[in-house]
Design a protein around this nucleic acid. Structure first.
Length: 859
RNA sequence: GCCGGGGUGGCGGAAUUGGCAGACGCGCGGGACUCAAAAUCCCGUGGCCGCAAGGCCGUGCGGGUUCGACUCCCGCCCCCGGCACCA
């Protein structure tokens, strides 16, 4: 009888072993078999839960596998350590964000160790260290030099909850991505990174990323939002100037019956006639005050006001009124449109509401459009151009659109233009816990970049100030101009933390270099990252910014690749039931009794399956799981629970199932360790094996093949099920010989058990290391070679042939392998075999699929 | 509305150049061990009919192609994610 599987003792025994042996430290000079594996680095918030494990356990298992395959694996870890939650937590607890952050980092390190998740710890980085953020500042200065960082006065997203501005990417359905507060607009002077300069390339290069999930690429395509069309200038009547519009339908210009400016459009004030001024001002003020959510509701009625001004339609010389309406957005195109109500549903609704003329210029083939009776806009590009001057009679479509644009270009009032939804990346943040922007404002010299040799601009060492930023710390912002030495003021904003994470994967190659941002030689040798893994929530934000920064660095000559991440895998979330009592609110999962009633009042609890969060009190900490079932069981369950890209619910039953398997594995190897240890180390020859042994030999090699292929494809769930099948097969084999160990085939049994231990080791490294010693080895599992299938073992001597009648399985027969390829023989044998079922029925046809089946078609 | 992904037992999920649907695990039922329970082990487990042998039905719905469809085609429904007054 095996002694109890004492996971605590075993895991404690091996916990520091791999680190001490240096298995996770690559030799960076050896790039022959290099593999750069990377998990998205975490934000160190409190402590990790089992959901975080999805990411890191997967990565650790994959890297252990790669090491055994002989790869030189770089798998580093760090912390995205700047950010607002640190400030908020610090405000709540009265500790400095730095202390809170470092305490969390300490917890994360402890948890990684408990999990057996190993990295090259010499490369650990934290973005809040001056050693790191100095290079954020350096990067900013390089961007500034090249015009990729610029300051402008703009309407920006403002989160009243976080008291800071946000990038467009951080506004989700009108709300702050972080805190959910409805976002408002503010006009501020802020720093931007010119990501739009790379819009076209960011879009086109998505095609190169064949190993990225389709949905991430689609999301980025949508986000970039390319549309082709034209810019057209409409001269104003009675005053100088023009209104420039962007349109994707230049062919409908003859149907433009009015124009609309966004409420924030700078021309609004200039062109509004005195008698309309009050009304326009009221409308504009109200529109600007409204939140983005209210304004962006698709279903709300169109509103607007007439400015009193007119413009000339440059195509036909007609005078058309200029309106202001909030359905036109200042942030897209030029902030102004030509309105063609007959062919644009939004313009149509507006025209109907305000009695503006509707003039069709595209007539469909099957009906006659009439502006007076139309009930909706005709948006299709099919039919014939009408009412369109020299274009009348042309077929509607792309060719005609081109002709229109050429006409505009000849006449000089418009030109071809591509517009993007993507806007420049606003990087200023009015917060303390971030990278100071290395810019000084001098009354004499203006905007002056901090010289590179004066970096880093350090965050001031202050008692934490609560919800106040650098703007409240004179000791920080009062400075001298680097150019003239006169009194000057520092920029008091910090950078968006997405700047920190947009290049960290480059820093891992030389994390402590204080001469330069990274070592280009190493970076070019090791990048792009071979495999990047993280949550899909970064599909746009982090991944788009990183792609942009990589391209910018390439154009500076610092890197020689176009894309930072060759392969991307997005793992799903782990969810858990959350319980709520109508009276007592969220109830912690640990306090919920078996019958799912409230521990305070006994009422039945409401349940929902949700992402683990402190607020819903449904967080499962790994520490508890490891205490009760061990890290190996948690790792096994995490990888077995389902396909890693899918969201999945954590259950107590599931972890128990995994624990059972680890126990079974322990007992199996323990009980038969002597058979393995004493077996002669001789090759297994298939021909020499008795039938049951032949089967074990075949199954073993099939499973080696299956497990290997599954791990390569990140299908750990099916890899583990194959390992379980192999374990079951071994049990069955032992059972076949009634557990009499002298009847077991030593060399074969040894091969099978050892392959099982090695193949399970990426998933359950602790027990694997222990079992490996138990069967008589002195060196480490990570020093072993990954098992290879023996092609000879995969040869099948007999095949089972399915016999169908009319496509339904009716019988099966086992035939020698060579015979299974003989169509005529198979047909004959099958007919004989099912003769009794065919009585009297006429056989019409027989389909034979060699090696697989015979289908007899009757009547 | 547009784009992407998906829908298979009580549950998580396997299976695709069209060829045995439900691997593996959970749960459940039965048995062994035990004074008893837990743990463990063994057997069973898609539904319906049948004592059984066996039969019928079955991969969201409706059609189609095919000897044969979870898999391919056409038309729908539902769920998840992204974008959305983007001109």
């Amino acid at each position: 009888m095996a002694p109890r599987y004492d996971f605590k003792k075993i895991e404690a025994k091996w916990r520091d072993f791999w680190r001490e042996k240096g298995f996770f430290k690559p030799d960076l000079r050896d790039t022959q078999r290099k593999f750069y594996y990377l998990n998205m680095f975490p934000y160190p918030s409190g402590e990790m839960h089992v959901g975080h494990g999805r990411n890191y356990i997967l990565g650790d298992a994959y890297c252990r596998y790669l090491i055994m395959r002989g790869y030189n694996v770089l798998n580093p870890m760090g912390y995205d350590a700047f950010g607002l939650p640190a400030e908020n937590a610090a405000i709540e607890r009265g500790v400095h964000p730095r202390d809170w952050t470092y305490r969390n980092i300490e917890t994360f390190r402890r948890q990684f160790r408990l999990w057996g998740v190993e990295f090259d710890w010499d490369r650990e980085i934290a973005t809040c260290e001056p050693e790191y953020y100095k290079w954020n500042q350096w990067l900013f200065l390089q961007f500034y030099k090249r015009g990729l960082a610029y300051r402008k006065d703009a309407w920006v997203n403002w989160c009243p909850g976080c008291e800071t501005v946000l990038a467009n990417e951080q506004v989700v359905e009108g709300e702050c991505e972080r805190c959910g507060t409805p976002v408002t607009k503010k006009k501020l002077t802020q720093w931007f990174f010119k990501i739009t300069a790379y819009a076209e390339e960011l879009l086109n290069d998505l095609e190169k990323l064949e190993h990225w999930p389709e949905r991430v690429k689609t999301m980025q395509r949508n986000w970039i939002g390319r549309s082709e069309g034209a810019l057209i200038r409409f001269p104003l009547v009675d005053c100088d100037g023009v209104i420039e519009v962007f349109t994707t339908r230049p062919d409908t210009i003859y149907g433009a019956t009015y124009m609309v400016l966004a409420p924030e459009h700078p021309l609004v004030d200039q062109i509004t006639t005195p008698e309309r001024r009050d009304e326009v001002r009221r409308y504009v003020e109200r529109a600007i005050a409204e939140s983005e959510i209210q304004r962006q509701r698709v279903d709300r009625p169109k509103t607007g006001v007439f400015t009193g001004a007119y413009a000339i339609n440059p195509a036909n010389g007609e005078k058309i009124p200029v309106w202001v309406a909030d359905y036109v957005l200042m942030t897209y195109g030029t902030g102004a449109i030509m309105a063609v109500p007959a062919h644009d549903q939004r313009d149509f609704e507006f025209a109907k509401a305000y009695g503006l003329p509707i003039v069709p210029v595209v007539q469909p083939e099957d009906r006659e459009l009439d502006g007076a009776t139309m009930t909706e806009a005709y948006e299709e590009k099919k039919g014939v151009m009408v009412n369109s001057g020299p274009f009348t009679g042309l077929p509607a479509g792309p060719e005609t659109i081109q002709k229109f644009i050429e006409h505009f270009e000849r006449e000089g009032f418009g030109q071809r233009h591509v517009s993007y939804r993507l806007r420049d990346w606003l990087i200023s943040r009015q917060r303390y816990w971030g990278t100071p922007i290395p810019i000084v404002y001098c009354e004499k010299c203006g905007t002056v970049p901090v010289p590179e040799d004066q970096l880093p601009v350090l965050l001031p060492e202050v008692e934490f100030l609560g919800k106040k930023g650098l703007a409240e710390i004179p000791a920080f912002y009062e400075t001298q101009c680097p150019k003239c030495g006169g009194p000057a003021k520092r920029d008091t904003d910090t950078m968006d933390t997405f700047v920190d994470s947009s290049w960290y994967y480059l820093r891992y190659l030389s994390p402590h270099d204080d001469e330069r941002i990274f070592d280009p030689e190493l970076v070019n040798a090791w990048l792009p990252v071979d495999q990047y893994v993280g949550g899909v929530e970064h599909a746009i934000l982090h991944l788009l910014y990183s792609r942009f920064v990589t391209k910018a660095l390439r154009d500076m000559g610092l890197v020689n690749f176009d894309e930072p991440f060759a392969r991307l895998f997005t793992q799903g979330m782990i969810t858990h039931k959350a319980y709520r009592c109508v009276e007592h609110g969220w109830i912690h999962v640990k306090e919920v009794p078996e019958d799912e009633t409230c521990p305070h009042c006994g009422k039945p609890l409401l349940t929902e399956v949700a992402k683990m969060s402190k607020s819903k009190k449904n967080v499962v900490p790994p520490d508890d799981i490891i205490e009760r079932y061990g890290a190996d069981a948690e790792r096994l369950y995490t990888l077995f629970m389902g396909p890693p890209e899918k969201d999945i619910e954590w259950t107590e039953e599931g972890i128990r199932g995994a624990y059972r398997y680890v126990n079974r594995l322990w007992a199996l190897v323990w009980d038969y360790q002597d058979v393995v240890r004493q077996a002669p180390d001789e090759p297994v020859r298939r021909e020499a094996l008795p039938p049951r042994e032949k089967q074990l030999w075949r199954v073993l090699n099939e499973k080696i093949k299956a497990v290997t292929e599954d791990i390569e494809g990140f299908r750990f769930n099916t890899a583990i099920s194959a390992l379980m099948e192999l374990t079951n097969e071994l049990h069955d084999y032992i059972e076949h010989h009634k557990g009499e160990r002298e009847r077991l085939h030593g060399p074969l049994f040894k091969r099978a058990v050892e392959a099982l231990i090695l193949m399970v080791s990426p998933v359950t490294p602790f027990i694997a290391e222990e079992l490996w010693r138990l069967v008589g080895h002195e060196d480490a599992v990570l020093e072993q070679r990954w098992p290879e299938p023996d092609p000879d073992a995969l040869i099948v001597e007999e095949r089972e042939i399915v016999i169908q009648i009319n496509g339904k399985v009716r019988d099966r027969m086992t035939v020698p392998a060579p015979l299974s390829e003989d169509r005529e023989q198979l047909e004959k044998l099958a007919l004989e075999r099912v003769q009794h079922r065919l009585d009297g029925k006429r056989v019409q046809r027989v389909i034979v699929v060699p090696g697989k089946l015979v289908n007899i078609v009757v009547e």
